[in-house]
Amino acid sequence: MKQKASKKPDRHPKDELLREDRMPHIWCPGCGIGSAFSSCITALKKTGIDYDRLAVVSGIGCTGRVAGYLNLDSFHTTHGRAIPFATGLKLAKPEMNVFVFSGEGDLFSIGGNHFLHAARKNIDITVICVNNMNYGMTGGQVSANTPTGAITSTTPYGNAEVPLNLPSLAAACGAVYIARWLSLDVRRLAESILEALLKPGFSFVEILAPCPTAFGRRNSLGSALDMNKLYKENSVIRNGVHPDETVIEEGKKMVLGKFIDKERPTFLDRLSKTSELKSTAWPKKEMAAQR
């Protein structure tokens, strides 16, 4: 018996954090960014933080549209510069909980250097990076995270470069929280984003999201549904492994999980103690005298 369920479509429970007048969003049917965004809203609702104290910063690109769709204080910045804007906002208003939601082309290809230094300084922001392995919005060009051999519009014979491994990079720069999930792992992802938002220090969550239109089409990965299934079948959860073991390469399953969760004083903690730091400048005079 065919039965219509939409008797009286009430308001969607997530509409309170959406700018409904901007819906429908621009993402293609089945795009992983939508599911990741949905998980992010779940996490934001669970934090219990007053919405006036939350701010989202995005760069340019498909994922960069999140700042425009989320009904919070939001900042849609220039290409690759989401983290510097977020850093400025956090330092000017330390009571705000600032998070960056952007794509890997924006955060790592165009703005890679900003990521390194924000993580090194341990600025108290959360970076959520949707990795769809290409520049989706501009027509599927190669990015710093395109797997070796993959076909994109600018590498028609296959990509000769080696992609960045984002968890290793974040760990090397000193991020205090590092996790990676598929966009399909909605519950684990929401839990991770919640932990990252509440964690003091630079926390990083990578989301592997299928891009069916630009990346999947050229690499014959099928429809959005097929790509989601493919990602699910080709991934394995290994919590707590060393980030160097999470490299995405051919013949290996993509490693997901929470890799790093440690404590480290944030930039603002250190800033308030700079006068004390003077006396412990390195190298100490005694050490120099011993040589």
Binding site: D10, P29, G30
Partner: peptide, 17 residues
């Protein structure tokens, strides 16, 4: 179950999973 049909883009994730 409520379905807002006008928003749906027919990706089939809900049906499949």
């Amino acid at each position: 179950i409520y379905i807002i049909e006008s928003r749906c883009k027919g990706c089939g994730l809900c049906v499949e999973f």
